[in-house]
């Protein structure tokens, strides 16, 4: 949260807190570059990972991070992505792009609203509420598709994700960058962002400060739905298919990216920029292991290790903080 190091100088915990994730990412990239220079360290591979694979992961992880900052979780992100793209797909195939995109976004917003109301008004635990929404949305997606992919979309639609601005920067990267900037600004520099952190840190104290905590939490889940829908549209355009099967992996990986990115399940702590690094770590691990020819099941294990390691780092940082506090108190 705080951009300022309250200790004044540079301390180990400050360095760990700020740069541990970037160091992990750098180590992974350096290791791959050293061991597989001809497959990994090429412009083609790096740009494919960064500009074409990572954006989906990053966008989904943003939403997950927001939910976790409010001391919640959004299990339904992957399935909302699927449902919104499946519903939008019919119109898109008929050439009604705006209707398709609009409908997909509306589905995302509606799903987020339902989760938000269940959590804040009905009082269902976030995990349970979004778990329920996950089942309903995924079920609906299977019903609507009859359990087959929808594929083969018009080229003009696919341009959204596959095109390049000035033939240079991929649209996908640009959209992701834009959303990053918006969310980064929102969380760090707006009243809304501040309220999200307050609510996540202490729901009751935030409420008693006059923050409409329920509304804030509901808004976060709506934003998540919207992010899932946007990702769904981009995914559909990029892969030329709407596929209900991808839901689970997205949800799990985005939780992992949030955790690795420094978001705490205790609530009130986490950042959009940390999440980008977390998502990149996961994407590069998967890419690197693909190049090494490691089976996907082992990739999962590796991601698990990184999660545990990053939580260990987190705990160490906190212990250092507690130690520093005690030492200061003792010296008074």
């Amino acid at each position: 949260m705080s951009e300022i190091n309250p200790d004044g100088g540079i301390s180990l915990r400050f360095l760990l807190d700020r740069y541990s994730r970037i160091m992990i990412l750098a180590i992974i990239v350096a290791f791959m570059a050293a061991t597989k220079p001809d497959a990994f360290w090429t412009m083609n591979n790096l740009s494919a990972v960064a500009f074409q694979q990572a954006p989906f992961m990053i966008l989904m992880s943003f939403g997950m991070t927001l939910a976790i900052i409010t001391k919640g979780i959004d299990k339904s992100m992957g399935s909302v992505l699927v449902l919104s793209s499946v519903i939008g797909a019919g119109f898109v195939k008929n050439g009604q792009f705006l209707a398709g995109i609009g409908l997909a976004l509306a589905v995302g917003v509606a799903c987020g609203f339902v989760s938000g109301i269940l959590i804040t008004r009905v009082g269902v635990a976030p995990f349970i509420a979004t778990y329920g929404v996950e089942w309903v949305t995924l079920g609906l997606a299977f019903v609507l598709t009859g359990n087959v992919y929808i594929y083969d979309f018009p080229q003009e639609f696919r341009e959204i994700a596959t095109g390049r601005i000035f033939g240079l920067v991929p649209n996908l990267a640009l959209i992701t960058l834009a959303i990053f900037l918006i969310l980064h600004f929102t969380m760090g520099k707006t009243i809304f962002g501040r309220k999200v952190y307050m609510v996540g840190n202490n729901f009751n104290a935030a409420t008693l400060s006059g923050v409409n905590a329920r509304k804030t939490v509901t808004m976060v889940y709506i934003v998540n739905g919207l992010l899932a829908a946007i990702t769904g549209i981009l995914y559909m355009a990029r892969l030329n298919a709407a596929d209900p099967g991808i839901s689970a992996a997205f949800t799990l990986d985005s939780i992992a990216a949030s955790l690795i990115g420094g978001t705490s399940f205790g609530g009130g702590k986490g950042s959009i920029s940390g999440t980008i690094v977390g998502a990149l770590i996961i994407v590069f691990i998967r890419n690197g292991m693909n190049i090494w020819g490691v089976h996907t099941t082992w990739q999962q294990t590796a991601v698990g290790f990184v999660i545990i390691f990053s939580i260990f780092l987190e705990a160490t940082t906190q212990k250092l903080t507690a130690f520093a506090t005690r030492r200061r108190r003792g010296g008074e």
Binding site: M1, M198, G268
Partner: peptide
């Protein structure tokens, strides 16, 4: 501590 302040946020916030 539980309702008046947010312990894990800075004084200024």
């Amino acid at each position: 501590k539980a309702e008046g302040v947010i312990l894990k946020m800075p004084v200024r916030e």
